[in-house]
């Protein structure tokens, strides 16, 4: 069944992926992006505009390339051996795959939260202060201020303020993930990428993280990969549907979920496959 569907889209021109939702120019623009793992092509001609201070959700069945695409935005794929890329990703006015780009600075600007909470084996305080310290902030008072602000932003301050210096490994899974979000916020990124951030959490912890993501939209551009369609529907402004390394449809979330323009999107959303 899947193969016939692929045929049906292969002839089609990629649907208009630019969705006018705000008045500002898009902050991230992916243009004709191809990605290869050695010989295998994992992404095909990805075109996507991502607007500032909105939540963009990437959905699709596993192996569709949504996480791979997310990891091209902060060049985490550089760490994987044998990955090559064609096309462009522009953030602001800069192609991040340009030779002159400093990857370390890029990652500071584009933070990332991972599938499984990955707190460092050190104290809560040191987890948050880790990034700022690496970027040269040494003053105790300034670090204290950053730690409190980041934890507050991540809605974790009240739960941990009395045990900042105990190990982060002692926190619950949900707390750990919010700690990881706080850790990203501490380096003051403009964009936060989230790779299925709630897939390892229980429903209650998931709810808390979702609330937090909604809050963060005020100040950050958020791109979130999720396998959970309800989650995408609840929190995102724009939804982009990936299938077999291609973008099938990108639109305002409510439209994607109520009135998708592509048959495959509809099949996926109604649970016919995936």
């Amino acid at each position: 069944m899947a193969t016939t569907q692929i045929k049906s889209i292969s002839g089609a021109v990629p649907a208009g992926n630019t969705v006018e939702t705000g008045n500002s120019a898009p902050q991230i623009v992916a243009q004709d992006l191809d990605l290869f793992y050695g010989e295998f092509q994992a992404l095909h001609k990805i075109n996507l505009d991502i607007s500032e201070k909105q939540i963009t959700a990437l959905i699709g069945p596993s192996g569709c390339g949504k996480s791979t695409f997310l990891r091209t935005l902060n060049r985490m794929n550089d760490l994987v051996k044998g990955v090559s890329i064609k096309g462009e990703v522009r953030i602001g006015n800069e192609n991040i795959y340009d030779k002159s780009v400093n990857v370390v600075e890029l990652r500071k600007k584009v933070g990332m939260v991972f599938q499984k909470p990955n707190p460092f084996p050190m104290s809560i305080y040191d987890n948050i202060a880790y990034g700022p310290r690496a970027h040269g902030i040494k003053k105790k008072a300034q670090l204290n201020e950053i730690v409190e602000r980041s934890l507050t932003q991540a809605a974790l301050w009240n739960e941990v303020k009395d045990r900042l210096h105990s190990s982060a490994m002692g926190l619950s899974g949900g707390q750990q993930q919010r700690l990881c979000i706080a850790r990203v916020l501490a380096v003051e990124p403009e964009i936060v990428l989230m790779d299925e951030p709630t897939s390892a959490l229980d429903p209650l912890a998931t709810l808390k993280v979702e609330e937090l993501v909604n809050e963060l939209k005020q100040s950050y551009t958020i791109v979130i990969v999720t396998h959970n369609m309800q989650q995408a529907a609840r929190i995102s402004d724009i939804t982009s549907f990936f299938l077999n390394g291609k973008i099938i449809e990108t639109d305002v979330t409510s439209k994607v979920f109520t009135n998708p323009s592509n048959k495959q999107t509809e099949d996926y959303i109604t649970g016919k496959f995936g």
């Binding site: 902060n74 985490m76 760490l79 370390v104 600075e105 890029l106 990652r107 500071k108 600007k109 933070g111 990332m112 991972f114 499984k116 990955n118 460092f120 084996p121 050190m122 880790y130 990034g131 310290r133 690496a134 970027h135 990881c180 850790r183 990203v184 380096v187």
Partner: peptide, 26 residues
């Protein structure tokens, strides 16, 4: 675990910073 290396690099640290302040202590 590699997840620690990724977590640190994703914060915009260099490889050596990651090794020095996270991997070696661990």
């Amino acid at each position: 675990p590699d997840t620690l290396r990724e977590g640190s690099l994703a914060l915009g640290t260099t490889k050596w910073q990651t090794i020095k302040s996270l991997i070696l202590p661990t």
